[in-house]
Nucleic acid binder design. Structure first.
Lengths: 212, 212
DNA sequence: ATAACAACCTACCGGACGGTCGGTAACATG
DNA sequence: CATGTTACCGACCGTCCGGTAGGTTGTTAT
């Protein structure tokens, strides 16, 4: 009748478990990944793994929180000390992008497997994600107040940024044509300046806007 | 020993089934959706539904192809007859975005549930997706040849576009602050011109470029 | 009338999966 | 050497799910 939590055994091993689990879940999806799969990847049996975890859902929940911790530490906190707003936005995009390409898993899982959580867990994760989203949007609002933002909806802009960044995990491969740094740089460029060349100097053969 | 395919019964009902299944799968995920869930949503039993489908995976495969058909018909084919390259790009982005926000499901499932397919099916879908991606990239290359594209990697640009567009399904809600049209328009704006104000005509109170 | 078929149903099967139980071997502590 | 604790394992359980077998009902074709 003890409601005790089993007490965290060896924080070191636990991190290994999270990392291994994240990688497999990322590749096969949460539902398609059995607890056995994760255990075997760690050279264990299922019962052995259950020594460390309290259930499959709770494992997922922990991994997600781990990912959000990374996001806070490597993106939001450092960004907080950047005064210049445009530079701060640039940093957020680039460092978040790097986290997606470099880290294997935890953050991307955040994005894909929300439905697998229990309602209470889902609410907590959603709240943390919301906090991140809000500070991104705040930066955009600040930019607007300074007159540096284009005429776009800040919410749509913030989501579009996240879309570009999170999508990275689906196409960027290590050892591909673009390094992690280059990929992050490309995202920054596209997000801040768009794809089309600004038609400032010497209108080249008269571009027309075609509607419909 | 008949290898016969059971022959498609009533093309009408089949479309209803695809649509209902797509909605549920979109909400709960493929693995978490049981065949029973889909059957019940259609007012049937599982065995009843199996009169129409040949298996859960094949149903998913069919839905994905249905989504790709939509994409071809409503985006790629009309786009093919637009001469002006920039206008074509604009059209592709906007119409694809509208398809994501308006249609409920088939296209988004394409994106999320690839791992659930059998290898042979997965290859076929990947090939079709690849074809779509290539024509998007072709448009960008054409734009580059015309000197209208910024200095960005075309592959990264194409993927970033898809990221923004596909992400729409995660945040845009019917009846929300932005209509489908407005959301699509925002995506187009951000993708083509970026977030930061171009510092061309009449520097409004002295905008500076901030580096680093 | 009856044959034929589509469109379902109830009942069931085999297997996989999450999770548990009762161990055991290794090692540390006193 | 006794005791406790950590880190596992083999065997097992209940449940749920994809899929099937075989029947029933309603409609159409001849």
């Amino acid at each position: 009748m003890k409601a005790q939590k089993k007490s965290a055994p060896s924080n070191e091993r636990l991190a290994e478990i999270y990392r291994a689990a994240a990688q497999i879940i990322l590749r096969k999806g949460y539902d398609a990944t059995s607890v056995n799969d994760i255990a075997n990847a760690l050279g264990m049996t299922k019962a052995g793994l259950y020594h460390y975890i309290n259930g499959k859902k709770e494992l997922l929940f922990d991994i997600m929180n781990f990912g959000l911790d990374e996001l806070d530490e490597e993106v939001l906190t450092p960004a907080g000390s950047i005064e210049d707003t445009a530079a701060r936005l640039r940093f957020i995009i680039a460092s978040h992008a790097r986290l997606v390409t470099r880290g294997q898993g935890a953050i991307t899982i955040l994005v894909d497997e929300m439905t697998a959580l229990a309602p209470a867990q889902s609410r907590k994760i959603t709240r943390r994600k919301r906090a991140y989203f809000d500070s991104l949007r705040d930066t955009l609002n600040e930019l607007r107040a300074e007159g540096k933002l284009c005429d776009v909806d800040v919410t749509a802009a913030a989501f579009s940024l996240l879309g570009m960044i999170n999508w990275l995990s689906r196409w960027h491969r290590q050892g591909g044509a673009l390094t992690e740094e280059q990929a992050a740089e490309q995202i920054v460029k596209i997000a801040l300046h768009g794809l089309l060349r600004a038609e400032t100097s010497a209108p080249r053969r008269g571009l027309r806007v075609v509607k419909s």
